[in-house]
Amino acid sequence: MARMKFLCDADRCIECNACVTACKNEHEVPWGVNRRRVVTINDGQPGERSISTACMHCSDAPCMAVCPVDCFYQTDEGVVLHDKDLCIGCGYCFYACPFGAPQYPQAGNFGGRGKMDKCTFCAGGPKEDGSEEEFALYGRNRLAEGKLPLCAEMCSTKALLAGDADAVSDIYRERVTARGFGGGVWGWNTAYGSDT
């Protein structure tokens, strides 16, 4: 069974934000919610790097651990999903998440955040695969259609990789060997533990 992971090769990302746009369009994400974002560090200085980041679908996911209503679940492929019918909008997953993945559609006072929204690894949610209901709540279920996340699929420099961890690691390792350097597999220790 595959273990799905994202990998962003910081030596390739050119901060074009196509992944962000693709995600927003594919899932018709509500205004103000960014399931994926690109962060540039050392902007304008030597050593500038950009990284596309979203929910990393952690092995021991902090959001799952702190949710008071236990609305999260992890699929057999390691994708962390949540049930919006259960979510009470308490904000705890947002406080716990190292990557700032959970988002809320509303302003937030008096518990009025609305249901949490985050990257689904293009795997939909607990509703019937490919149903209109699933699309309205969670966006497209590309995994059920046999496709990989759109952000990585359409990355122009192939900086963002998504798919089975072994395949993704192999591609990255090959690159590092070929070009003789690598920026480290960003975020993997935090998301999947130090033995990955």
């Binding site: 960014n34 962060v39 540039t40 560090i41 050392n42 902007d43 190292p98 700032g100 935090t190």
Partner: peptide, 15 residues
């Protein structure tokens, strides 16, 4: 880091 979206919290990659 720097982000192009208006939420300054989004600029943190890992908290």
């Amino acid at each position: 880091g720097r982000v192009s979206i208006p939420d300054p919290q989004a600029a943190f990659l890992i908290q």
